[in-house]
Structure formats: structure tokens, C-alpha cells
């Protein structure tokens, strides 16, 4: 059920990217999709009652923590994906600013030359 809510969030982003006319709003739809994917990936590795995968000195023994910790592998994947999303967001925003400066609008139906 929680997975389905994440998928609903993804679908809201997809709807926003498909239907809206404003360029910045399409970018916001892509950002919402990134949130949904990140949250879903972290949720798959979650364990009820588990602890964060950071060992502390009195806890010591690493062998015991493999059955008490959450999954560290999706966290490592998502950590890089968040920073990449910021870089791609900067790229998309700069494309939007250039297009606005060239055509004077954010409306993609007004920009004739984008229609192949």
C-alpha cells in the first residue's frame, strides 16, 4: 500500500509533465518523479525495528548487525542519484531561461520552432 502511494506520486509527476503547457511546470513534474523513485528505493530496503547502517564503538560486532540493520545498498544508490538530479535540474532550468530569452514566453505551444 505504501508502494502504491509512491507510485501515485510518480503518476502525478508524469501527468504534470505530459499535460501542462508551462516549461517550468514540466521541470517540476520531473522533480516530483525523482522524489517518488528515491522514496520507493529507500522503502524497499527498510526493516521494521532496524537501525541505520552506521556502526558505533560499543555496538562493535559487525556480524550481529547484519540482522538488525536496514539495507545499505539502495541508500548508496539514492545518495548519488539526488546530487545528479540537482545537476540535471540546473541544466533544465538553464534551458528554460535560454528559451524564455529567445522567445519571450514559457508556453511551449507558442514556441513554433520546437515543433519539429
Amino acid at each position: 500500500m505504501l508502494y502504491a502511494l509512491c507510485f501515485l506520486l510518480f503518476m502525478i509527476g508524469l501527468y504534470c509533465a505530459l499535460v501542462k503547457k508551462n516549461m517550468v511546470r514540466i521541470v517540476l513534474g520531473i522533480v516530483i518523479m525523482e522524489y517518488a523513485v528515491n522514496i520507493l528505493l529507500i522503502m524497499i530496503g527498510f526493516r521494521i525495528g532496524g537501525e541505520a547502517p552506521i556502526l558505533s564503538p560499543p555496538q562493535g560486532l559487525p556480524l550481529k548487525t547484519s540482522l538488525q540493520s536496514v539495507d545499505p545498498l539502495p541508500q548508496a544508490l539514492v545518495l548519488t542519484a539526488i546530487v545528479i538530479s540537482l545537476g540535471s535540474l540546473a541544466l533544465m532550468v538553464s534551458i528554460c531561461i535560454r528559451t524564455y530569452q529567445r522567445y519571450g514566453t514559457f508556453d511551449i505551444t507558442q514556441i513554433r520552432r520546437l515543433r519539429g
Partner: peptide, 10 residues
Amino acid sequence: LKAPDIAITQ
């Protein structure tokens, strides 16, 4: 969700 690294980064 016990992911403090990702919380700080996010």
C-alpha cells in the same frame, strides 16, 4: 526510514 545520510543530502 533510517537513512540519515540521505536525509542530510536531501
